[in-house]
């Protein structure tokens, strides 16, 4: 039997669908527990909630701060992704995103305004993580943004929850970022469409996934309310939204990887991005502004890519 529930969390729609022989009520309870992981991550990692653990971190610099396992994992992962991309992906850009209008709490409508930061702009290098003591030390004042990490991590945690409860076949979709476990109702690998970046009710093609995540980044859903032509993705080094790619999808064994590196690759652009994904061993498909499709060598094979474009 297939049971599906939809939730709202992290300013998007979270869909969890399980396929199993268990009684329906039991499946519903398992889905609710899996969904609980999203709220847990949001309460730790949200930049849009002044009450989140992230936004309650002390302002003090150069002092190690002990944080929760969820927040620690998210920050450590984000800093590692930043180092991997030489700062093209950078979690220290929270304040810049606020200035670009991305500071509104989707539930309350309240806007977060952090104090002006020191003129010397912080980078990910100013975040020191200590896994032994589980502490974070900020060497410059900053607002950390986990926007390209937290959702993927919550998907992975929800998947862990479902696996732990004995499910093999399920789909977790958080606003277009997906983990597909096992097989669908027809006992085939899950068939996932990649959304067309321009025609929103169409798909650009499909992939088949079995125990893998796919995340897609694109500027088409979240334009900046204050800067014309800019959107929620930011190249930390240029200070502008990346413009060469309309959409970038990454397939990975973990949603947090696919989430962070679909964002990183769109900032890196078509050439550097594909090169980096090949080097890391991630499968990536990019759609340029003029609707050309490029991908890593193994993407088409990995996902049984079937283009519609």
């Amino acid at each position: 039997m297939t049971v599906e529930k939809d939730f709202i969390c992290m300013d998007t729609i979270v869909m969890i669908r399980v396929v199993s022989g268990k009684p329906k009520q039991e499946q519903v309870q398992s889905i609710l527990r899996a969904a609980g992981q999203f709220y847990r991550v949001e309460q730790s990692c949200s930049r849009f909630d002044s009450g989140s653990e992230l936004m309650r971190l002390p302002d003090k610099t150069d002092v190690p701060i002990r944080v929760s396992p969820v927040l620690f994992s998210a920050i450590q992962f984000a800093v590692s992704a930043a180092a991997e991309t030489g700062g093209k992906f950078d979690p220290s850009i929270g304040r810049s995103l606020e200035k670009r209008g991305f500071n509104r709490n989707y539930l309350t409508g309240e806007r977060i305004h952090s104090d002006e930061v020191h003129p010397a702009q912080a980078t990910y290098r100013d975040i020191v993580v200590n896994p032994v003591n589980r502490t974070i030390t900020l060497r410059k004042p900053m607002v950390i943004d986990l926007g390209a990490v937290a959702k993927g991590m919550a998907i992975d945690l929800a998947a862990a929850e479902l696996r732990n409860e004995g499910y093999e076949h399920f789909l977790v979709n958080a606003g277009g970022d997906i983990f597909a476990a096992g097989r669908n109702e027809q006992k085939e690998p899950w068939k996932i469409g990649i959304r067309h970046p321009v025609h929103h009710d169409e798909i650009a093609g499909t992939v088949r996934l079995e125990n893998a995540a796919i995340c897609t980044s694109g500027g088409y859903e979240r334009p900046s309310s204050v800067l014309p032509g800019e959107h929620h993705l930011l190249d930390p080094l240029s200070g502008h939204s990346p413009s060469q790619l309309s959409s970038c999808s990454v397939i990975a064994p973990f949603a947090m990887l696919a989430d962070a590196f679909s964002t990183a690759a769109i900032v890196l652009g078509p050439d550097e991005g594909i090169k980096k994904m090949e080097e890391m061993g991630l499968d990536c498909l990019m759609i340029t502004r003029d609707m050309n499709v490029t991908s890593t060598k193994k993407f088409k094979e990995a996902g049984s890519w079937n283009p519609v474009l």
Partner: peptide, 18 residues
């Protein structure tokens, strides 16, 4: 979208707002 495209299980895309 996925409901309209009956031949896919789901759709991956940029994160939609609520």
């Amino acid at each position: 979208v996925s409901r309209q495209n009956a031949n896919v299980d789901n759709v991956s895309g940029a994160t939609e707002s609520t």
